[in-house]
Design a protein around this nucleic acid. Sequence first.
DNA 1: TACTATCCATAATT
DNA 2: AATTATGGATAGTA
Lengths: 213, 213
Amino acid sequence: MENGEASLTTCLRFKEQKPMQNPKLTAKQRKETKQQNPKTTKGRQKIEIKEIKEENKRQVTFSKRRTGLFKKAAELSVLCGAQVGIITFSRCQRIYAFGNVKTLIESYLRMTPVMLRSYYGGDVESGGGDGDGRMWWEREVESVPEEEMDEYMKGLNGLRENLWARICEMGGDPTVQVNAQVCEDLMAPVNWKMTDENLTVRNDQGQAGYDGY
Amino acid sequence: MENGEASLTTCLRFKEQKPMQNPKLTAKQRKETKQQNPKTTKGRQKIEIKEIKEENKRQVTFSKRRTGLFKKAAELSVLCGAQVGIITFSRCQRIYAFGNVKTLIESYLRMTPVMLRSYYGGDVESGGGDGDGRMWWEREVESVPEEEMDEYMKGLNGLRENLWARICEMGGDPTVQVNAQVCEDLMAPVNWKMTDENLTVRNDQGQAGYDGY
DNA sequence: TACTATCCATAATT
DNA sequence: AATTATGGATAGTA
């Protein structure tokens, strides 16, 4: 740990040589003495990337860095004409989302081949289904021959279960639907303005002025 | 446009006073002259946040900033014990994703009340369904009374269409399923290591060494 | 919350 | 791709 020791030494030396600030001085006095001794804080120090234990510090960091992350995402989107969506769950499962998350999720799922598979029948029949270019689960109920009806029902039922299972895979009671206020079209592709209100999505009505973590 | 003029002036002055570098010098010679004249480039300059027109420059910026964004997301996740997922579509609809996107999407959808509504029947019946605490679409086919079967079928069929419609809402041919190689569990909560291979998700097999945008 | 010194991401350049 | 100098994000403090 030569590195750690080195930075510790630096830190101590700093403290010994320059006591940060005389707490007895008023703000005005501090401002006046700035010219002679401009160093009033240690400024930003390097931190190790590991979980922050202190609850309060962690909340502050989460708030600051989340804001920074969303700002970077907005810049990336504008500069490069890309769509960017971010979903964040804080420790206490509060959602913070950035971008047109709903649309992006749908695009994402559409490009994910595992989405629609029959629960009972294994993989979706490849090659376009039953001769008319549609998958079996795309056919009208009325077009299913009577003799295939039972199998079709089973498949459809399984598909429904499978979809629901996928949605609820994370656990928890599937019948409980948290009534989240979900922002959906936050980010215009150009001239997007960054405000905390635009960025932050809350599960409940947090008190104003308290970030809520 | 005082600002633009000012920065232009600055730029010109720099060029006039300090020609960046003599192109005739070898790398070794440049390194040796560093001590006398340390300024060899203009370094990072301030840019306006607007769409980059030059294709090549935009690709480079997208690659750099995407990497930076994902790194920030990883740090946020580790420092604050939060789950973070990012979905990015480049201009040419190439997916780049970060984090356990699948899981986060499922959580997100679970907290979104609009997910499951009957296509025909309007809203899901509130209050727990038909007396056994389950929604109608959760019931086994076998438990549906004969006289309700037709309506049930219609509802189920509608539900299926509704789900699929939601998934495909973005447009495009729903039967086309791009075989995306989707990373699913990229980010361990702690000790997560940042490598380009871990971060980048491609829709196709790009040539090695070419970022592909 | 606001400030400030520091450090890191990245625009420009090779 | 690699390098360098700058600009902006942010850790620490008040």
